[in-house]
Amino acid sequence: MAKIKLSEDKINKIKEICSAFGNKPSEVINVLHKVQGEFGYLPAELQDLIAQEMKVSAAHVYGIVTFYSFFTMTPKGEHPISVCMGTACYVRGAEKVLDEFKRELKIGVGETTPDGKFSLNCLRCVGACGLAPVVLIGEKVYGRLTPDGVKDIINEYR
C-alpha cells in the first residue's frame, strides 16, 4: 500500500469523519461525500486512509469513487464550470457552447487550467430547462447562453 503522506490535521479530520459514521463499511459513500466536501477531491492517499478507517479494502473504496460521477480524484478549478448536457440543453445548442468554452480556456472536459482558475465539466440536467442551454459556474446559473456570450462570462472571473 502506498505510504500515506498527509498532514496531521488532515488525517485527524478524516478519522473524525469516519468515526462520526461509526466506521461502518455501509457508510463509505456518506464518508466520501463528507470528505470530498471538506477537501474538494479524493486523491489515492485519502482513499487509503478512509479504507483503513472503515475496515474495507482500498480497492473497495476506489471502486466506489470511480463508479459514481459525483466523486472526483482530480482537484477542481477555483471556478468550476459545468455545462449542462441534458437533452433539453443539447437540442438548444449546448454542444456549441461547450466547444466555445474548450476553445476559450484551451482545456478539455474533465481538465483544469494550468493556473488552477477554471475546470470544465459536463453534467446532466440541472432542472432549469426553461433557460436552456444552461451553464453553472460555481453555484451561479447562466441561462440561454450562446457561444458568443462565453468569452464575456469567462472574463467576469479572470
Binding site: 455501509s26 459513500i29 466506489i64 459514481y68 459525483f70
Partner: peptide, 24 residues
C-alpha cells in the same frame, strides 16, 4: 440516503446496493 450520480441507480436493485454503501 445520498446518491452520487449514477444513472443506473434508478434501477431498484442497483439503488438498494448503493444505499448499502456499495457500487450501484
Amino acid at each position: 440516503r445520498y446518491g452520487a450520480g449514477a444513472f443506473v441507480c434508478g434501477e431498484e436493485t442497483a439503488l438498494i446496493h448503493s444505499m448499502e454503501g456499495n457500487r450501484g
